[in-house]
Design a protein around this nucleic acid. Structure first.
Lengths: 235, 235
DNA sequence: TTTCAAATAATAGTATTACTATCTTAAATA
DNA sequence: TATTTAAGATAGTAATACTATTATTTGAAA
């Protein structure tokens, strides 16, 4: 991942560009207008109707191109989903390093992590064609479908889940900074990530599975997770 | 849910029969040989190839009936998935009340819950056409697909997730017995349920997301969850 | 300036999926 | 015996998930 001037006509703007695993695409969607439109409209459509109802035909219609045009960029809709989800984890990783930069106290860093993962972000204007708000919603409802497949092993061998794993490692290291003797830093990291999303989904769709149904407030999820995490690592 | 003599020719046997939400099916699969075969072979096929690869045509071929025959029992494959998942949660609820019967100490009850959810059960012979071992594997890999849809609200209105919610409430009550002042009993219950499955999936398929990759032993997951749970409720 | 390669657009076609409909036969029940 | 009911057999449709072909446009190297 790197930050660069993306060749925008407004010379002083900085554009955040994320380098993705090339096995995920046939043609790099960042390198053309059609490609960027594929990403933009995919996010819109998956957000609006869910991944099951999402087809390349509808996507093509929404962009104003043909099905074959989309297939030149992505082999199938699963790889496209993994692409945008990976993109999101890279973006979160960048946000995390940005937001925890210069913070010494690992407990404060860990709180930042929990807040970052639980908060419905606002759209980041430095990434023109990606709506991070919608992307966060997609992660909540569709994130686990990236790996809950019978080809998870193959996908994993092709490093499709590297950004997720990297993030999990980063969080695991912060946990170990808090308590170097804690025995389950990776499992706790993946628990934080998944529960930040799942408790949000439950809060909004199956409220009796949570204790936040009255307020429907993300801040409650943050409090729950903070208690869970800091009590188990004993701070 | 009730236990009854299922009309077996071996008169002294007890058969566990679980009453399911009738909105899930068109014809009750428990009431015919074909119906029982649909359940049995669905579990086998979804276990072997995953839910995405599962079709009513393949199911019909595997049973030796026709596609139309299956459609007489279930409207679509999603409802069939929700059916077998609901069945599993009812069965777990029964196991839970059976195993915690006569136990006074709520902390021991809660440990039983964690172990029950994390352990790969053996096939229960009192449920002839259901293989609980395979069903547990299905829950791990496909369980969240029951509710991660864009029609979760409608499904919820039809009470499709009642057995899951009931289990969550039961576990929440045990948590409150341990600590009546704990503020998040339902969220902690759903966290235990989901993480018992997800950490198992990660352990076997994306091991760097956990700390159990060396042993690949369920007992490690149980230890992790026990620490997480009992530290957060402060026992 | 030409040329050549790459991207795109337009169109067509296939196998599979997710159903619906109908008609006949077999078995259970009244 | 008559009648409902389930099951079996067969057919058909719309949508999905692709693949293939050809023609057109564009942009960079020779």
């Amino acid at each position: 991942m790197f930050v660069e001037n993306g060749g925008s006509p407004n010379y002083m703007e900085i554009e955040l560009q994320i380098k993705m695993n090339p096995s995920l695409y046939l043609r790099d969607p960042e390198q053309s207008e059609l490609g960027k439109n594929i990403i933009k409209h995919s996010i819109q459509l998956i957000h609006d109707n869910g991944f099951e109802a999402f087809t390349f035909k509808k996507l093509a219609e929404s962009i104003g191109t043909t099905e074959a045009g989309v297939y030149r960029y992505f082999e199938n809709k699963h790889k496209l989903l993994v692409y945008i989800i990976s993109w999101y984890w890279c973006w979160i990783q960048f946000q995390l390093s940005y937001q925890t930069n210069n913070i010494e106290d690992p407990a404060i860093k860990l709180k930042k992590v929990i807040t970052l993962l639980s908060t419905n972000v606002e759209d980041d204007i430095t990434t023109g064609h990606v709506d991070e708000f919608q992307l966060h919603q997609i992660l909540i409802a569709e994130g686990s479908k990236a790996y809950l497949t019978n080809h998870v092993g193959k996908d994993n061998n092709q490093q499709f889940f590297q950004p997720y794993k990297d993030l999990c490692n980063t969080i695991g290291e912060i946990i170990l900074e808090c308590n170097p003797k804690y025995k389950y830093p990776h499992s706790l990291a993946s628990t934080i990530i998944e529960m930040a999303h799942l408790q949000n989904f439950f809060m909004n769709h199956l409220p009796t599975l949570t204790d936040f149904s009255k307020s429907k407030d993300e801040k409650e999820i943050i409090k729950y997770l903070e208690e869970l995490v800091f009590n188990t690592i004993r701070i």
